[in-house]
Amino acid sequence: MTSPTMRRAAATTIALGLVAAGCLVVAAPANAQPGDVSAVGATASFTLDVGPFHLDTDTSLGAIAAPAGGRDAVALFDQTLVDAGFADITMAGIEGAVESPDGVAESAMNVDATSANLFGLNLVTLDDAASAVMCPSDGPAEVSVGATGLSILGVPVELARESPSAAQTAPLPADYEAPDGTAADLSSLEVTVQVGQVRSVGTDGAVGVALDTIVSIDGTLDDEVFTDRVVARLLLAGASCQTRSQIAAPTITGISPAAGVPATGGDVVIDGTGFTADTTVVFGDDPATGVVVSASGTQLTATAPAGAVGTVTVTVANAGGSAQIAYAYLAPSPTATPTPSPAPPAPATPTPSVPKPGGTLADTGSAAAPLAGGAIAAVVAGGIVALVVTLRRRRA
Rank of each mutant, 00 (worst) to 15 (best):
T57R: 12
T253A: 12
A249S: 14
A381L: 07
T90R: 00
T364P: 08
T125Q: 09
V312A: 10
T251R: 08
G149I: 09
T5M: 13
G365H: 13
S107F: 03
G146K: 06
T148A: 11
D58F: 10
V124L: 15
L236S: 06
T364H: 00
G208K: 00
A183W: 00
A87L: 08
L76Y: 01
L76W: 02
G139D: 09
G202W: 04
A66C: 08
P332C: 10
P352H: 07
D72A: 15
P34F: 05
A28D: 09
A323N: 11
E106D: 11
A348G: 02
P34V: 10
T243K: 00
I14F: 12
N117Y: 07
G196W: 03
A11I: 00
V388M: 15
D286T: 15
K356V: 15
L48I: 09
V312N: 11
Q324F: 04
I217K: 05
M1E: 14
V269K: 14
D363K: 00
G120H: 09
T335F: 11
V379Y: 02
D223C: 05
V143A: 13
A44E: 02
L24Q: 13
V124I: 15
M134E: 13
L55Q: 13
T253Q: 08
D56C: 01
L150S: 04
L18M: 06
I152D: 03
V389G: 07
Q33R: 15
D138Q: 12
S3K: 04
V312I: 14
T90H: 02
C135P: 03
A258I: 00
V261L: 06
A30F: 10
L150H: 04
V291Q: 05
S296R: 12
P179D: 07
P342R: 08
I247A: 02
Q33K: 14
T13S: 11
A210N: 08
D83M: 01
G69F: 11
V124T: 09
T349R: 09
A105N: 06
V385N: 13
V379E: 03
G238R: 03
P342I: 07
A210P: 01
V145H: 01
A97V: 11
D78Y: 02
S38T: 09
D228T: 12
R393P: 00
S333V: 13
L48P: 01
A75M: 12
Q79K: 10
S144K: 14
G69Q: 11
D78S: 06
S151C: 02
C241Y: 04
F86H: 03
S38H: 02
D222N: 14
T148K: 08
V157A: 03
A174D: 13
G93F: 02
L118H: 03
L118P: 00
T114Q: 00
S131Y: 07
P164D: 05
V230A: 05
V74E: 10
D36N: 11
A9M: 06
S115H: 06
